[in-house]
Amino acid sequence: MPKSSILFVTKIRAYLEVMRPANIVTAFADVLAGFAVAGGAIALQSGELQISPEGLVWLLLSTFGLYGGGVIFNDYFDADLDAEERPERPIPSGRLSKTEVAILGILFFLIGIGAAYQVNAYSIVLAVLITVGSLLYDSWGKHSVLWGPLLMGLCRGWNLLLGCSIVPITLLIDWYLPFIPITYIASITLISQGEVHGGSQKSGFTALGLVILVTGSLLLLGAQSTYELMMALPFIIIFGGMVIPPFLKAAINPNPDFIKDAVKRGVLSLVLLNSALAAGFGGLMLGLLVVALLPISIGLAKLFAVT
C-alpha cells in the first residue's frame, strides 16, 4: 500500500477514535426513546399518533452532531492529561493536532444545532443547551465530584428531551423523565473518576445505589397511564442484569480494571435504559428497534475506545 494511502487510513482511524462511535450510537437511543414518549403523550391527548418521520431524522442527525462534538472536545481538553495517562490517544500520539480536533468538534456542533433548526424552536434551545453543557463538562466540570456527574447527566437528560421536542407539549407533560438518565449518567460519571488510578468504596456504593434507584424508577413508571409496564419489563430486567453486577463488583473492589468494566457496561447499557422507556411509552416494536442499537454499539466498542 502506498505511503499516502497508509497516512490517509491512519488519519481516518484517528478521527474515528476521537468520535467514539459506540457512544454516539447510545445517543440515538436517547432520541428514539424521547420520540416514543412524545408518541405516548400525543396519543393520550388526542387519541391519534401524528409525528413527522422527517423530524425524527433531523433529530437523529442533531444528536449525532451534538454528542459527537462533545466526545471530540473531550480529547481536545484532555490532551495534556492523555499525554501522561493515555499516550496512545490521537492527540498525544501525534496522529491528530489539537487544531484538527477542535475544527472537527466545531463542525459536529454546527451540524447538531443546524439539524435541530429544521425541527422547531424547542429543539434549537435544547441543542444549544447540550452544546454548552458538553463544553462546560469537557473543559471544567469533569474534574469536579459534584459538577461532573451533574453536567453529564443534564446533557443526556436534554438529549432525551430533544427526542420529545418533536411534539413540544410533551416537554410539559413528561418534564420529569430526564431525571432518570440524569441520575444514571451521574452514577457512571461518579464511578468513572477512578478508572485510571482506582476509586473508593464510598463512591462505588453511591454509584451502585443510583443505578438501583434508576432501575426502580423504571418500574414505578408503570403507575402512569401512558406507560405499559409489561411491555417494558423484559427490557428493565435485562438492563438491571447488565449494570448492577459490574457496579457491585467495582464498589466492593474499586480497582481500575473493575471500574473500567463497570463504566463500559454502563455506557453501553444506556441503550437498554432507553429501550425500556421506548417499549413502555411506544410499544414492543419501538423497544426492539432501540435495543437493536446495542449490538452495533458493542461491535463498535471492540474497535474504538468507549472511555
Rank of each mutant, 00 (worst) to 15 (best):
S97C: 02
E100A: 11
A102P: 07
I103Q: 06
L104R: 04
F109S: 00
L110T: 08
G112H: 06
G114Y: 01
G114P: 03
A115K: 01
Y117M: 11
Y117N: 05
V119P: 14
V119T: 01
S123R: 04
I124C: 02
L126C: 07
I130T: 02
V132W: 06
Y137W: 09
K142T: 00
H143S: 07
H143I: 00
P149F: 05
P149V: 01
L150C: 03
M152Y: 03
M152I: 13
G153R: 04
G153Y: 01
G157Q: 07
L160P: 02
L161Y: 08
L161N: 05
G163K: 12
C164N: 07
I166P: 00
I166D: 00
V167A: 03
V167G: 00
P168A: 04
I169F: 15
L172N: 09
I173A: 09
F179I: 15
I180F: 06
I180W: 04
P181M: 13
Y184N: 08
S187N: 06
S187R: 09
I188D: 04
L190W: 14
Q193N: 08
G194F: 07
H197N: 14
G198P: 04
G198V: 03
Q201D: 09
K202E: 15
S203V: 12
G204R: 07
G204L: 10
G209Q: 13
V211Q: 14
I212K: 13
I212F: 13
L213Q: 12
V214E: 11
V214Y: 15
S217K: 15
L218T: 12
L219M: 14
L220G: 06
L221E: 09
G222A: 07
A223P: 00
A223C: 08
Q224H: 15
Q224N: 13
T226C: 10
T226V: 12
E228F: 10
A232D: 08
P234F: 09
I237M: 14
I238F: 14
I238P: 06
